[in-house]
Simulated assay, not measured.
Amino acid sequence: MQYEIRALSADHLMMHLTIDAYDEADARSQIEARGLFAAAVTPTRRPLFGTFGAKTGGAARLSLVLFSQELLALLNAGLSIVECLEALLEEGSAALCTVLTRLLSGLRDGKRFSSVLAEQADLFPPLYVGIVRAAEGTSDLPQSLTRFIDYQQRIDSVRSKIISAAIYPLILLIVGGGVSLFLIAYVVPRFSEVYRGAGREMPWLSQLLLNWGQFAAAHTTLLLSAIGIGLSLLAVTLRHFFAHGGVVTLLAKIPGVGERTRIYELSRLYLTLGMLLEGGIPIVAAMETAIGIVSSGIKTGLQAASASIQSGAPLSSAFECNGLTTPISLRMLRVGERSGELGKMLTQSAAFYDGELSRWIDRFTRTFEPLLMAAIGLVVGTIVVLLYMPIFDLAGSLS
């Protein structure tokens, strides 16, 4: 949360500052750490619809990948973790400086780096804290950061492909819907005025279309308001579905798409477990960390598999019994158990899934986009043909 501060400096000058803090006490402690005296601390006003936008504060502006890349570069240069954070503090933005100040304060108090990261759970997820905690035990933080950067970039790559595949169909739907709405609300009423004075009986479908056009022209404001309310409700519903994992559940019920959704979930699970195992985290602890990033269906199977492993079952058998494998990944897991490189095999299984998913997305978009264009063209063409059918009848009678 942001606070507006009126502070007094050591040379008795009044200053006005805006900082990010958890609460008023945190804001005052940050001001005192700068050698200033806080005369007044006031929370900034949030916009009315701020809850529907991006997260306020530093959480929305902190990129874990960028932060990890900068920290990794400084660590590889031979700096200690405190020196790295101090260097980043000198060059960082206001939001990042607030985060770094808290991290440095915790380290100077004698806390572990993973502990001070865990204190800011809204910025650093349990997965990130887990790999840092494991790296503290092996004194290999640069390697762990490298694994996390590669992990996040691979997940972002698959997600960007899915988003890119959805952009073009969405544009087609918006343009096609806009053209259809313009024809019905503007063009059709003009034609109805012309046909009304002709005194001829029109085809039934054309008459139905003209009636719709007249209704739209007479209630334009009402229709636009209804469309706006409908889009707002749709946006709120989608936001709720995304927040509670309902989109994955809905997609899983669509024939053909459900299996690909499951493959995407398994790929993310395997990639996460592979990174954690390669970082030195035990398999049960890795599964407990991964539970927070999977959907409800995968979570139930993962919890049951964790219980089986604690009872002495091998990972491949536990995953097979709880529907967390495919024939190919099951073979790769068994090979990883025999060779002692289970983390590597999990990562390779995720790479195989990612490649299969990318190929399916390409095939799906190449098939779906032409079909969508044809459907939109059919709707617009039907409206135009129905508009001109009375004219064709009139031309036929005159000839």
Rank of each mutant, 00 (worst) to 15 (best):
Q2Y: 10
L8R: 10
S9I: 00
D11L: 00
D23Q: 01
S29I: 02
I31V: 15
I31M: 14
A33V: 00
A39M: 15
A39S: 15
T42H: 14
T42E: 15
T44K: 12
F49K: 01
F49L: 12
G50R: 04
K55H: 12
A59H: 02
R61S: 14
R61I: 06
L71N: 10
A73L: 09
L74G: 12
G78C: 05
L79H: 08
E86F: 06
L88P: 03
E91D: 12
E91S: 10
S93R: 01
A95R: 02
C97R: 02
C97E: 02
C97G: 04
T98M: 03
T101Q: 10
L104I: 09
S105H: 08
G106P: 01
G110I: 04
F113E: 04
L117V: 00
Q120P: 00
P125W: 04
R133N: 11
A135N: 08
A135S: 14
E136K: 07
T138E: 08
D140L: 03
Q143A: 15
R154P: 06
V158P: 03
R159W: 06
P169D: 13
L172E: 10
L173H: 11
I174A: 15
G178P: 13
R196A: 14
R196M: 11
A198V: 08
A198P: 10
G199H: 06
R200W: 02
P203W: 05
L208N: 10
L209W: 11
L209I: 12
L210Y: 07
N211D: 10
A216Y: 07
A216R: 01
H219M: 06
H219R: 04
T221E: 13
L224M: 07
A226D: 04
L231I: 08
R239M: 12
F242R: 07
V247L: 15
V247S: 15
V247E: 14
V257R: 02
T261N: 14
L271H: 08
L273P: 08
L277I: 08
A285Y: 13
A286I: 03
T289F: 13
I293P: 03
G297H: 05
I298G: 06
G301D: 08
L302P: 12
S308H: 05
I309A: 13
G312W: 12
P314F: 09
A318Q: 09
N322L: 04
G323A: 15
L330T: 02
R331Q: 12
M332R: 04
L333D: 10
E337C: 06
L342G: 02
W360V: 00
W360L: 00
L372W: 13
A374E: 13
G377F: 15
T382L: 15
V384T: 12
L386K: 11
L387V: 09
